[in-house]
Every structure is written in C-alpha cells, then in structure tokens.
Amino acid sequence: MSVKVYSTPTCPYCTMAKEYLESKNVQFDYIDVSADRNAANEMITKSGQRGVPVLDINGNIVVGFDKAKIDSLI
C-alpha cells in the first residue's frame, strides 16, 4: 500500500490525519507542501483544490481529514 499525506506544518487536521494513520499502523510519506513547491503543485493537480490535508491512498484522493473515507481505503 502506498500512502502520501500532503500537509502544512500549522494545519491541525493534518496532525490529526497523521496521528490517526499512526494509530492504525499505516506507513505513509508525510509531505510538507509549504517547503516543497513541486509537491504543492502535485497536490493541487491531483485534488483540484488548495486545501490541506490531502491524502493519496493507492491513487485514491481524499480531501480533508475524512475518517470514514480513510477507513474504507486502508
């Protein structure tokens, strides 16, 4: 399974998403889009919007910390 979490350092829902995945023992890449311009563009292209967090779970895009959707994909 490949999981990416696009986030910013001050965003509370990103922290929640990260902690939630950790509690489920899911391995993921945590990408800070405020420090990585290419990653920011990648996230905007994938999700069609600029809100964080965005999760990419095996190619499925989840916008926001949507727990039910995350549960259905992991």
Binding site: T8, T10, C11, P12, G51, V63
Partner: peptide, 17 residues
Amino acid sequence: RGRGVHYCATCDGALYQ
C-alpha cells in the same frame, strides 16, 4: 471554496507562497 476561498489560514495559508 477550497479553490481560492478559505476559512482557515493556519490550515491552508502555506499553499499561498
């Protein structure tokens, strides 16, 4: 909304470098 209109700067501000 989410594509330029936002209600949480701490969340989404960093995308406006």
